[in-house]
Nucleic acid binder design. Structure first.
Length: 261
DNA sequence: ATGGCACGGCGCCCGTGA
């Protein structure tokens, strides 16, 4: 079973990119973030026509998340909100597939360190982990995928000195992420690529950032150990960032030794 | 030190992204 995650920055702009990529890479389940569309305007047809099913949770203008998956796969127990957290923004989808509990999340950017949105971001990280702690143990197969809007380590930013305590690389954000690692999550990309540098998932549209590779690795797979042990690979595919009118993010995917029944 | 690009919205500028 191969799972992908991709912040596509408008699903109405990027439908053809998504179909091309999941076809090329044989992705079974794709989690997408920043669909930027309310539910009654979601472009369902372009996916169903190609043999995929979609579930989505959107709002007007901002945010929005969706799961696009091969119609032969059984997705179960879908939920669209975090327990005990009154969130008005469309950022969250939970589902189960083949015994794996999957949390697909578009974490808030934080906007600015001094902004109330930064506190909202930290609160969001806490709320998701609290939900997970109540429902699972670290011995369960639990996966979080999505746009975390935090680069975990020094090698995940183009210049750690410049980025130090800036948005997406702030000590408070690292503390939030650390609570996930402390509970038992692992950064699956780094399991397979522990020392690889200059590999990112997001580059600013401005300043020719992609050409200069001034990026951040903020789109992640977090896996519990049992799930890490079932993984064959975890890779970032930067090629779609070169396509015409691209998202500012590149997709990430992982393959697991889990047969589809 | 600032802005730069891209997106959607009752749109011809603005809020947001990170």
């Amino acid at each position: 079973m191969r799972i992908g995650t991709w912040n596509i920055n408008s699903i109405r702009k990027r439908g053809s990119h998504i179909l091309r990529w999941i076809g090329d890479k044989k992705i079974d389940i794709l989690a997408v973030q920043e669909t930027k569309v309310e539910d009654d305007k979601f472009p369902i047809d372009i996916f169903t026509k190609s043999g995929y099913s979609v579930i989505f949770c959107g709002e007007k203008h901002f945010n929005g998340v969706a799961i696009i998956y091969n119609s032969a796969i059984k997705i179960e127990n879908i939920e669209y909100s975090i327990d005990s957290f009154d969130d008005e923004e469309a950022r969250f989808i939970y589902f189960e597939v083949e015994g794996v509990s999957v949390y697909s999340i578009y974490y808030p950017s934080g906007t600015d360190i001094d902004s109330p949105r930064f506190q909202y971001k930290l609160t969001y990280f806490t709320a998701v982990l609290e939900m997970i702690k109540k429902r699972h143990t670290p011995k369960d197969k639990v996966l979080i995928v999505g746009d975390f809007n935090i680069a975990p380590f020094d090698i995940d930013v183009y210049n750690p000195k410049v980025m130090k305590n800036k948005l997406s690389f702030h000590q408070d954000e690292h503390k939030a992420l650390e609570t996930y690692f402390d509970w038992g999550f692992e950064d699956l990309f780094r399991v397979f690529h522990p020392t690889e540098t200059d590999i990112f998932t997001w580059w600013d549209y401005r300043k020719m950032s992609f050409n200069r590779n001034l990026g951040l690795r903020i789109d992640l797979f977090l896996t519990t150990r049992v799930l890490t042990d079932l993984a064959f690979d975890c890779n970032i595919d930067i090629k779609p960032r070169r396509w015409e009118s691209p998202s500012d993010h590149a997709p990430v995917y992982a393959t697991f030794n889990i047969p589809i029944s």
